[in-house]
Amino acid sequence: MENNTVLEVKNLHVHYVTSESAAKAVNGIDFEVKEGESLGLVGETGAGKTTTALAIMQLIPDPPGIIVDGEIYFEGNNVILNTDKENQAMRGNGISMIFQDPMTALNPIMTVGDQLSEVLLTHEKLSKAEAKKRVIDLLEIVGVKSDRYDDYPHQFSGGQKQRVVIAMSLLCNPKLLIADEPTTALDVTIQAQVLEIINNLREKYKMAMILITHDLGVVAETCDKVAIMYAGQIVEAGTVREVYLNPKHPYTRGLFDSIPKLDDDSSELIPIEGAISNAADLPTGCYFHPRCRYCKEICKQQQPPQKGEGHTFMCHFDLFSEEEKEERR
């Protein structure tokens, strides 16, 4: 493993098992994130994005969640083998996570300033006055004025709350920030502000980031690399440029064809037929085969291998290579 690799996930499998069913949420994913790099994790509802993030944070609810297989290396340590204490330390100053709903991260009956100071004080040896100063400085950086230190969360708008949550996640200078749909609930003008803040801070602190979203535009504007998830697998991954300019998996193609393009609204939208499969009842063979317009017999029977280097994809065929396209003509 290269020494500037911050996170490496290998063959991760996570299931949620209840008496009625077993949902296969994550089914063998591999990826890595290097220092200062940002990875966009894209996929539809139920694709396993949050589960992946929770596994890295060692926060999978157990029961019903189980990490069935795989390894997760953070700075060279397999975190699955961590003790509770080691996990707490890791979450304190190694990895931080921004959850989708800012309210779940904030305590409604404590002022914003006190909450942030408290986080700082539990992880670092500081005086109260020093903590307060650090918090005020950080709030200032994310654009919350210092006179809001003594306000309660409900006195903030959605965008401001999200800034507070971002400030909170950065308090202890994490090496890796996992942001789960950090701007989905925000208006586009506010989203642009928040993404700019995240980008600036990332540069300033050389922080690595995993950005979870279903917005391909947000990834294009904030990430270096992208991984497309479908039914708990990464079906395509590579640099944003490679994947966006030359998508190789039919699902990735389908996503791009489904979204209206701003610069070309005459083009017809081509939806992907059907809906994402239930994690408790995944199809045989390629998990995408019931919705795939290129499906052949082999797709129904065998899981496709991972192909490509750097720019990888999971499909029995290389459907969009020049030769293949020629053949279909």
């Binding site: 391909l216 294009a220 300019l245």
Partner: peptide, 21 residues
């Protein structure tokens, strides 16, 4: 104008400038 500039674009060849209000 600000609203339109803020729309995230999937065009990786041409990064659009955002107006930050």
């Amino acid at each position: 104008i600000a609203l339109l500039s803020a729309i995230p674009s999937t065009n990786v060849l041409q990064k659009s400038k955002k107006i930050i209000l």
